[in-house]
Write a protein that binds this DNA or RNA. Structure first.
Lengths: 186, 186, 186, 186
DNA sequence: GAGTAATCGAGACGGTACGTCCCGTCTTTCC
DNA sequence: GGAAAGACGGGACGTACCGTCTCGATTACTC
C-alpha cells in the first residue's frame, strides 16, 4: 500500500523519536511532522504509534520474521545459559528495554497489536526454544520454556530485582532441576 | 487533604467507570464530572486516573495494607496449591483482570505509581509466600517464589495459554522439583 | 476536452447529489467517486463543484443558450403577469430554489462563475423582457425590468416575505404605475 | 458566556483578517491563532466564521441593535433621496461590500445566521423606512419599501449595472410614480 | 491492423482545516 | 475560605477534502 520511501521515512522517524522523547510522548501528529509525511498517510498504514514502532522494530531487526537462533552445541545446559545471558543483555539494553516495555503495556489495551506481537515475535521465539529442549529429550518442553522465561519476564517487567548474569545462572540451575527426561539423564 | 466525602465519591466514581468504559478511557475530566467534584479538587489529591484507581482499589480491598493470607496447614504442597488456585481464580475474574492489566501497563510509564504498587502490594505479597516457604525449610525461598509466580504472570499477561486449574497443578509439580531443601527431603 | 461519456456521467452525478445532500456538501472528491471518474479528470474540465453544477444545469436545460420565451399576446399587462407568475412558480420549486441560491451564493466568491452566469443566463433573460417592454412603447425598458425583478429577487433571496401569486399581481400593478409611455397612455 | 477580553480579541482579529485575506479564506483555526485564543473558546461562542464576522459587525456598529436613522424633514422625496444615496455610498464602500456579500452568501446555507441577520439587521431597517413612508401618507408602505430596495439589491448583488448617484435618483423617480396616496398628493 | 498518443481510473501523497476531547491552570462565585 | 463550576490556552485526536502526482489500462486516432 504505502510507498517504500514513505515507510522508510516513518520507520526512521519513529525509531529516532522513541529514543529522544520516549514512547509515552510519541504522537501520530509528531511522527507525521518528523517524517515529513501527512497524518493521513500515517493513518492509512498504521492505527497507533505503538503499531508503527512495532513495525519499525520488526523491519529493522535482523530477523524480520521473528526467528531467533537457539545455539545448539549438543550441550543443553551450556546452550541454555548462552540463550539466557543473551536475553538478559538485551533486556538491559536501554533501547530494547524502553521499546519492549512500551509494546508490552500497549498490548494490554490493543488486541490487534497483541495478536501481531504474539504471532510474529513471541510464539516463534518460544517455539524455537521448546524445539531445542525437545531435541535434548526434555519432557513437556513448552512448560519448561515457560519456567525459563516466566521468572525473567516477571523480574524484568515488575522490577522486583536485578536482572544480571548471576541471577540468570542460578535461575538456570533451578529450572534444570525441574526437568523430566524422556530416556536418559542430561 | 481532601474531605472524606470527596474521596468517597471519587472512589465510587472511578470504580464504577472502570467497569463501564474500561481503564483506557478514564480521564480526569470524566471522573470529576461523574463524581460531582471539581477538576481542581481531583488534581489536588491525585496526578492521574491510574493513581486514583489504585487508591480506590486499596481502599476497597479487605486488606488495605496489601497483606495476604498464605494458608499454613503444615502441608506445603497443599498450601501452595491452594494459593496458586486462588490466584488463578483472581486472574480469571474479569474485573480483577482488567484492573491488574491496566495498572501493570501504567507502571511501565509512571515510576511513582510503580514504586507505590511494588511497596504496597507486590512486595508484601511475595514476602508472605517466601516466608511460608522458608518456614518449610526451602532454600532460597525468594527465588522459588519467583519460579512459582513468574510463569503464571507470563502466561496471564502475554496470554500465551489458558490459565486454569490443570495448568496450575502441573506447574506446581515442576516448581516443587526445583526446590533445594535445607535439611531433609520433602 | 473531456469525453462525452465522462461529461454525461459527471452531470448526472452532480444533479443527483445536489438533490440528495444539497449544494453545500458537494465536493470534487465526492462527485468523482459518484461519477466513477478520477479526480484528475474532473479538475481537467471544471475548477469547482459550482462550475460543474452550473454546467450541468445549462446542459440539462431546454434552452442551453439561456434564452427564455417572453409571451407576446399584444396585451402587455397580461403578458407580464404570465411572466411573473411563471418566475414565481419556478422560485417556489424546491430544486430550482436550492440551485439558484447555491449559484447566487457562489458568484459572490467566484468571479469567473459570476461572469458566466451573467452572460449566459441573466443578461439574455433580462434583455428579452426589456425587448418586450420596448415593443409595447415603454420608456427605459431596462429600468422597468429591474423594477419588476428586483423586488422579487429581494423577497426571494432574503426571505422577507412569501413569494406567491397575490403578491406578484399586486407588485405588477405598482410597476405598471411607474412606467412612462413613449407616445400614448397604456 | 465568553469573557469580554476574549470577545474583543476575536472581534478585532476577524475584522482585521477579513480585510487582509477576504471572507472566503477565513477559518476558525486561523481566527483562533490570530486572536491568541484556543479553538475551543471560539467554538464555545460561535459556530462559524460567518457568525463571528456578523457578531463583530454588529458590535462595532454605531447602532448595535440594527436601528437606522431615517431622515425626516417633512419632504418625503428629499428624505428618500438622502436615504438612497447613503445606502449607495455604503454599498460602494469596499469593506461593507465585502462583508455584506459574504453574509448574504452565507445565509443561503446557514438558517440560524439567516434568522439572526433578518431579525437583527434587515427587518428593523426596512420597518424604519416603511414607518417614514406611512407617516407621509403612503399606501402599503412595506411594498413601496421593497420597490425601493429590491432593484438596488438586485443591481448590487448581481452586478447588473453601476450603483451610482444618477441611477439612484432616476430609480427614486420611478418608485415615487408607483406610490398610492391615502388622502392628498405628496 | 499496428503503433502511438491522448485520456482515463485509481489512488498515494503533502497539506490545511475541521470539530472534538482532554490536559492542567486559572478565575469567579457561592455556601 | 474551601469547593463547585467552568472559561481558558494548548495539543492531539481521527476525518474530510484539497489539488498534485504517478501509475497502468483503455481508447481512439494515424500511418
Amino acid at each position: 500500500m504505502a510507498r517504500p520511501r514513505t515507510v522508510t521515512r516513518v520507520h526512521q522517524a519513529v525509531l529516532a523519536m522513541v529514543g529522544e522523547i520516549g514512547f509515552a510522548r510519541l504522537t501520530m501528529e509528531g511522527i507525521a511532522t518528523r517524517a515529513q509525511v501527512s497524518k493521513q498517510t500515517l493513518y492509512r498504514s498504521w492505527p497507533s504509534p505503538a503499531a508503527i514502532l512495532f513495525d519499525a522494530l520488526l523491519a529493522s531487526s535482523s530477523a524480520p520474521n521473528g526467528e531467533i537462533q537457539v545455539p545448539d552445541t549438543g550441550q543443553l545446559a551450556n546452550d541454555l545459559e548462552a540463550l539466557l545471558l543473551a536475553t538478559v543483555a538485551e533486556m538491559n539494553d536501554a533501547a530494547h528495554d524502553t521499546m519492549l516495555r512500551a509494546v508490552t503495556a500497549e498490548i494490554q489495551t490493543d488486541p490487534a497489536l497483541a495478536t501481531d506481537l504474539r504471532t510474529r515475535l513471541l510464539d516463534p521465539q518460544l517455539r524455537a526454544v521448546a524445539a531445542r529442549l525437545a531435541e535434548a529429550g526434555v519432557q513437556d518442553p513448552a512448560a519448561i520454556t515457560e519456567l525459563l522465561y516466566g521468572p525473567m519476564f516477571h523480574r524484568w517487567l515488575l522490577r522486583t530485582g536485578p536482572l544480571d548474569t548471576d541471577w540468570a545462572q542460578a535461575h538456570l540451575q533451578r529450572v534444570l532441576k525441574a526437568i523430566d527426561w524422556s530416556t536418559s539423564s542430561p
